[in-house]
């Protein structure tokens, strides 16, 4: 059974007003336990709306969301419990920090769950370490931290609830390349260690190509494709039509192919591409 499932999900903003807009249009999808799903799509393609429905913050106009097969909008369902299971990190999450210390801010979620002091303490320290926050930062005021550090505090705040599904809405927006990589690497490590399910919304094909085991491409409120990265990137023309570009490295290798230098496999990550090239330069075979 998929851990999270959307059935014919639709969301329409401001119904009945001149500003009516369908942000999510009859979307159905299944997310399996332990998957790392990359979600890409243009601004306004419905990514954020879909994410907020998946953890029960927005009530779908029609359709169902099933968590472990249970409808989260069923009469008896406890949406607060759903939100502890499906953690959502918003865009620019650093703007939601409010506590006096970093420690207490990370502890806000676990405290709302009603955990014991010792359990909270353990979780705060664990997640802070997981996102690379040094111990001494825990007693500082969040507003005294740098932008990247604040972002990591906010992510830790959701991680500390140990959700089974962790959704991150563009966690690297507005960070410098080094900061982006750090956060994404820590996320990948966290995924490996805990085996939780991760949904990563991103604008960057590079990022999702590197980490995701599955890609969900949204276009104009509908699913364009939902498959493994290699199958998604194989439809480069369709992607290009919606204005989404393939990862840079894939385009480099496509250009090489046009020049008559071919490799047996498609390349989506710089690491893999570099390995292939190294091989070829050492005298490995080109295949054309």
């Amino acid at each position: 059974m998929p851990i999270l499932e959307a059935k014919d999900l639709t969301y329409t903003y401001s119904i009945g007003s001149p500003f009516e807009k369908t942000a999510v249009d009859h979307i159905s999808l299944q997310i399996e336990q332990g998957e790392f799903v990359g979600i890409i799509g243009h601004t306004g393609s419905g990514k954020s709306t879909l994410m907020q429905m998946l953890n029960g913050l927005l009530k779908p106009t029609s359709g169902k969301i099933l968590l472990d097969g249970n409808d989260i909008w069923a009469k008896k369902a406890d949406r607060r419990q759903v939100r502890f299971q499906v953690g959502l990190v918003f865009q620019y999450p650093e703007y939601q920090l409010f506590e006096e210390t970093v420690y207490r801010d990370i502890a806000f979620g676990p405290k709302n769950m009603g955990l014991s002091e010792s359990e909270i303490d353990q979780r705060v320290r664990e997640t802070a370490a997981a996102v690379g926050l040094r111990e001494e930062l825990l007693e500082k005021a969040p507003y005294a931290l740098s932008g990247g550090q604040k972002r990591r505090v906010a992510i830790a705040g959701v991680m500390a609830m140990e959700p089974r599904v962790l959704i991150l809405d563009e966690p690297t927006a507005g960070l410098d390349p080094k900061g982006r990589e750090k956060i994404l690497d820590q996320l990948a490590r966290y995924h490996k260690r805990t085996g939780c399910t991760i949904l990563l919304v991103s604008h960057s094909m590079e990022d999702v190509a590197r980490y995701a085991s599955k890609l969900l491409v949204l276009n104009r409120a509908k699913i364009m494709c939902y498959d493994t990265p290699s199958k998604v990137f194989a439809q480069s023309d369709a992607l290009a039509q919606t204005g989404l570009a393939l990862p840079q490295i894939t385009r480099v290798f496509a250009a090489l192919r046009e020049k008559g230098i071919c490799f047996s496999e498609e390349v989506y990550t710089v690491k893999f591409g570099a390995a292939l090239l190294e091989d070829a330069l050492k005298g490995g075979a080109f295949k054309c």
């Binding site: 913050l57 607060r80 502890f84 918003f90 979620g109 709302n112 769950m113 705040g157």
Partner: peptide, 16 residues
């Protein structure tokens, strides 16, 4: 708009 966003974010962390 900002209030809406912050409310949603804190609710996601279990704020009641």
């Amino acid at each position: 708009e900002e209030t809406d966003k912050i409310m949603a974010a804190q609710k996601a962390r279990g704020a009641d």
